[in-house]
């Protein structure tokens, strides 16, 4: 191309910018949540048909059936998940005085009762899986291994509020000795 013919051509280039709008920003594909005219319910994100078994369902069922060994990592995971999904109602310590009951939601029971202290860990896993009374199921948000982690953390919470003096280290015990009942 000669210089003489390049000049008029390059003058047309800015006009091509007009083409740089819709096509690339809104490409002909569906993003998650985008509405779709193809389906009767208007969603591009279709729900799987009734009775579908997810590929990881057997794993989940297995994880639900077997209690994982107690480890520090499990407890820490449990603390994090408990903080996200349970504290709004059950509060950090598990007494059931969260911010949501304070606004009128029915108060959940305290975890520090004889009945719940004696309940097996699987009871907590069951409550998360199936819900309990007015409390909805959290199965869609807390997967099977996390349910055991939360149950483990609730156990730790229960111990924290009901530990015998003998379980404390010696120096703590001597500090508390003056005040213990």
């Amino acid at each position: 191309m000669t210089r003489a013919s390049a000049l008029p051509l390059s003058l047309w280039l800015p006009l091509c910018l007009a083409g740089c709008t819709g096509e690339m920003s809104q490409q002909p594909r569906y993003d998650s949540y985008e509405p779709s005219a193809l389906f009767a319910d208007g969603k591009s994100l279709q729900a799987p048909p009734e009775g579908t078994i997810a590929r990881d369902d057997p794993d989940q069922t297995r994880a639900l059936a077997t209690r994982p060994p107690m480890t520090l990592a499990l407890l820490e995971r449990g603390r994090e998940r408990f903080g996200i999904y349970c504290t709004p109602c059950h509060d950090e310590a598990g007494y059931g005085r969260g911010t949501v009951p304070a606004r009128g939601f029915p108060s959940p029971p305290s975890f520090h009762t004889k009945r719940l202290r004696q309940a097996p860990a699987s009871h907590f896993v069951d409550v998360i899986t199936k819900g309990h009374g007015v409390m909805y199921s959290y199965a869609d948000r807390v997967d099977a291994s996390d349910r055991w982690a939360i149950a483990a953390y609730i156990r730790a919470l229960q111990l924290s509020q009901n530990a015998p003096l003998a379980a404390a280290p010696a120096d703590e015990r001597s500090k508390l000795a003056g005040r213990a009942p």
């Binding site: 949501v100 606004r103 009128g104 939601f105 029915p106 007015v134 909805y136 869609d140 948000r141």
Partner: peptide, 25 residues
């Protein structure tokens, strides 16, 4: 925003997530 840790999308809450509280409130 349940999937923010595990996926590309943070996700917007399903209606029943609102209902975990607003079924009573």
């Amino acid at each position: 925003h349940t999937t923010v840790e595990t996926s590309k999308h943070a996700g917007l809450p399903a209606t029943h997530i609102c209902m975990t509280c607003h079924s009573q409130l």
